[in-house]
Design a protein around this nucleic acid. Structure first.
Length: 665
RNA sequence: GCCGACCUGGCGCAAUUGGUAGCGCAUCGCACUUGUAAUGCGAGGGUUAGGGGUUCGAGUCCCCUGGUCGGCUCCA
């Protein structure tokens, strides 16, 4: 055969036998090729009839290749400094890469600088990544000093999990890093590839970002390896842009804004993961809750209340104690009496802080015989629950030990279940939009087959899952499957919201539950007098009020829309003489329930403007001689823009409308 | 829970090889009364997270406890 007939980027191309990607792609940013759907090095030899696409370094695949190659360079750098370091795995991840090492002493921040320097040298030396096919036996000899790699070889083709970048389902391959001057192999790693042709292509758009540790193969029972995280981009500018995105996220961090804006705190004296809301955060929270209550009331929910603790038996019936005892606070033992020897004279009773509200609502349902006429019965409660989260997972308001769920349980008939779910999903999305979130997708969490944690019959799971799936797809939103992510008692839809800088947060959950009604033996009387079991829907919009508060803080970067802002209007007089004039206007606003105040302090007006700008107050009203004479005020907004000479009545009306419409300003 | 780092007045930060706690903002007082992001002067405030140890001497070194941060694991 004298000519290879190929399809390259959709067009027919002819090439000489023995051709590879270097010959087909001359564009410098093409770093690999996709041959018949498989990612390959550019050095991969092409065969007749191949369908080939160039992989640009800026494409998702290209970025992964860049980052994975950077991980190899990192590992080489580590072993050049510490030859005793044993290699774990080093895959690409979102925005970067990591590599795990088993080292005697954990890395220090100083090591990062030294490693970056060593990486730069390797990158500049222009080593070639050369693919070499090997076999289990040879690889075991070659990698005899790399125990973790040996373990991966043993797993090849099986459950490699995170090791997928090292050993794939196909041939076992090693990548040699070859020095272009000497032709010597200076380093090598077990890897399925592909890689950049040359380390030089990593360029200067990389940085090592943090040190951490991680369990080998993600298992808590395994040894912890030291992990080095890095980020890598096709150019220095893109690296810089990425770093700026991180800085923007840091500026929005609700933990920082919570302190700066005096919204909430976590006093050490109370305990880890237990927040107090300060007056400013408190009023925001009240406004959030009030609006939620109003909407629930309009949508046919009944409001109920339940205590924070309960005897253990309740959670035994519900199954929580068997399944989630670790996540619950330990029991409070009541009424136990001991004799002088410490023997139990009178058996006590254990009480638990509630980790969930559902069993309480179920008891309300069960407090009287129910008829089909009572259904659907929708019970809502801002229910405060306590969960003994592991200390290491606590994070600001988004992961706490004491939280208030905007929890509701809907008791419905099988027949109305689907309609009810559809209505709930619409209600949830509408309400989230009112709080300023409007970019959503859905996740459907389903049962993992064979996992004993999931209770209930397969048939019940199937019905529940199918119903949810249908409701989700009817919504028209993007639906992402989450196999194995269901609660132990039923499948769920969760609403994921994208915030102002594109991060996604899991917000609301809607869970179907055929299980608890059975455990509590719930029933209702049907039209024909027979007993039927209702279906339960668990749902929360905010998830937890605390978490939602944190997410909104980050979404708005503390620039809350007027209806949520703790202080909505601050009036700043040019001079003391105009204070009274502004007090009249502020008095008018306050009469309408606006959170408005006059800044009468001794500060200069410039200082006042600075203070209230930093406090992110949505409306500043400024007045001096000119305004007073005209019966007007001047608006100043958070972005520094302003509008002068607005008649007082118009100014008041504008503020009231902005609050009422829940708009951002 | 695990690994690592960290904890200094309300907040943000200083304090040479261990030598006896400073600064800015904020707070309080006085003066100033000003047209769009910091007026001036003065004052008060810290047993350096808590406890123990080493030392002539500890914010600095060691141990324990609590808390925070970055990850891992987990998240009804």
């Amino acid at each position: 055969m004298s000519v290879l007939k190929l399809t390259v980027d959709g067009a027919p191309v002819e090439a000489a036998p023995g051709a590879d990607g270097f010959g087909l792609f001359t564009t410098k940013t093409i770093v690999a090729q996709r041959v018949n759907g498989e990612l390959r090095d550019l050095a991969h030899k092409i065969a007749d009839g191949d369908v080939i696409e160039g992989v640009d370094i800026s494409s998702p695949d290209g970025l992964n290749i860049l980052r994975h190659s950077a991980a190899h360079v990192l590992a080489q750098a580590v072993q050049s400094i510490n030859p005793e370091a044993k290699l774990g795995i080093g895959p690409p991840i979102k925005d970067g890469f990591y590599y795990d090492f088993d080292v005697e002493n954990p890395f220090t921040p100083e090591d990062i600088k030294a490693l970056e320097k060593a990486m730069e040298r390797i990158i500049r030396s222009g080593q070639r990544f050369m693919r070499r096919v090997t076999n289990d036996g040879d690889a075991r000899v070659e990698l005899a000093n790399e125990p973790y790699k040996l373990e991966l070889i043993g797993l090849k083709g099986g459950d490699v999990g995170e090791g997928a970048a090292e050993v794939g389902a196909g041939e076992l391959t090693i990548y040699d890093n070859v020095d272009p001057q000497s032709g010597d192999t200076v380093w090598r790693d077990l890897c399925r590839g592909p890689h950049l042709p040359n380390t030089r292509m990593i360029g200067n758009g990389f940085a090592l970002t943090r040190l951490a540790s991680a369990y080998w193969r993600g298992n808590e029972n395994n040894k912890q390896l030291q992990r080095v995280y890095g980020t890598a981009w096709p150019s220095k500018d893109e690296l810089r842009a990425h770093q700026e995105r991180l800085e923007e996220a840091a500026r929005r961090d609700h933990r920082r804004l919570g302190v700066d804006l005096d919204l909430f705190s976590f006093p050490e004296e109370i305990g880890s993961g237990l927040a107090v809301f300060h007056p400013k955060g408190g009023i925001m929270r009240r406004v959030m809750e009030d609006y939620s209550r109003k909407r629930h009331e309009e949508s046919g929910y009944d409001f109920v209340y339940s205590p924070h603790i309960s005897k253990s038996n309740l959670f035994e019936i519900s199954g929580h104690l068997q399944t989630y005892a670790d996540g619950m606070f330990p029991p409070i033992r009541m009424d136990e009496e001991l004799d002088d020897e410490g023997n139990v004279k009178k058996v006590g009773q254990d009480y638990y802080l509630k980790p969930m509200n559902c069993p309480f609502h179920i008891l309300i349902y069960r407090s009287q015989p129910r008829s089909y006429r009572d259904l659907p019965l929708r019970m809502f409660e801002f229910g405060t629950v306590y969960r003994n989260e592991k200390s290491g997972v606590l994070h600001g308001l988004t992961r706490v030990r004491g939280l208030t769920q905007d929890d509701a349980h809907l008791f419905v008939t099988q027949e109305s279940m689907k309609q009810e779910l559809t209505d709930v999903l619409k209600f949830v999305l509408d309400l989230l939009k009112d709080y300023g979130l409007n970019d959503f997708y859905l996740e459907l969490s389903t049962k993992e087959d064979g996992n004993p944690k999931f209770v209930g019959s397969d048939e019940i799971w199937k019905t529940a899952t199918e119903t949810l799936e249908q409701v989700a797809s009817d919504s028209g939103l993007e639906l992402v499957p989450d196999p194995g992510g269901a609660a132990f008692y039923g499948p769920k839809i969760s609403v994921q919201a994208r915030d102002a800088i594109g991060r996604t947060w899991q917000m609301s959950t809607i869970q179907l539950d055929f299980n608890l009604p059975e455990r509590f033996d719930l029933e209702y009387t049907t039209q024909d007098g027979t007993k039927q079991r209702p279906v339960m829907i668990h749902r929360a919009l905010f998830g937890s009020v605390e978490r939602f508060f944190g997410v909104l803080t980050e979404h708005y970067a503390g620039h809350f829309p007027p209806w949520l802002a703790p202080v909505q209007v601050v009036a700043v007089p040019i001079a003391e003489a105009f204070s009274e004039y502004l007090h009249d206007i502020v008095g008018e606003l306050r009469k309408h329930g606006v959170r408005a105040q006059v800044d009468d302090s001794d500060d200069r007006m410039q200082k006042k403007i600075r203070n209230h700008t930093m406090a992110k107050v949505p409306f500043m009203l400024i007045a001096g001689e000119n305004d007073q004479a005209a019966g007007a005020v001047s608006f100043r907004f958070r972005d520094g823009s302003q509008e002068n000479g607005i008649p007082v009545a118009e100014a008041v009306a504008r503020i009231l409308k902005a609050i009422d419409d829940k708009v951002q300003v």
